[in-house]
């Protein structure tokens, strides 16, 4: 009878310890899985912040710090072709001189022929 009681008590104690230990074991498992999952997802977002600011940094110098007052449009640095005012006059003078020489030559030739014929 004593052995039977002892067995019953031992069995009851065993069941009781099993019943109390199982939930705690499950509870231990649950948090150990979920927290790492959350930190893993947070980590990339933390890294994304600094990396995006780093890529923006090199773009800033190209804005133009050294010439803050950047002129608009293209520089207008010419008064017009030189030929328009400077070259035409001598060219016309040369053509006129050539025509005068040719006319004089023709006149002299005619006169010579006329004197030879007479």
């Amino acid at each position: 009878m004593k052995y039977g009681r002892m067995l019953l008590v031992a069995g009851a104690l065993g069941l009781a310890t099993l019943a109390t230990a199982a939930p705690s074991a499950l509870a231990d498992n649950a948090p150990t899985i979920s927290p790492p999952a959350s930190t893993v997802t947070q980590a990339p977002t933390d890294k994304a912040g600094p990396s995006s600011t780093v890529t923006q940094a090199p773009d800033k110098p190209t804005a133009g710090v050294q010439v803050p007052d950047r002129p608009k449009g293209a520089p207008q640095t010419g008064g017009g072709p030189v030929e328009q005012s400077g070259v035409n006059a001598p060219l016309l003078g040369g053509v006129g001189a050539l025509a005068a020489v040719a006319g004089l030559g023709a006149f002299v030739l005619r006169r010579r022929r006329a004197t030879d014929a007479s």
Partner: peptide, 22 residues
């Protein structure tokens, strides 16, 4: 409006290609 020649940056010098028929 920009850096002087010799300073870091683009110094700009301008001159005419022609003017007054010359």
């Amino acid at each position: 409006g920009g850096p002087n020649p010799g300073e870091v940056g683009p110094s700009v010098i301008l001159g005419h290609v022609d003017g007054a028929g010359k």
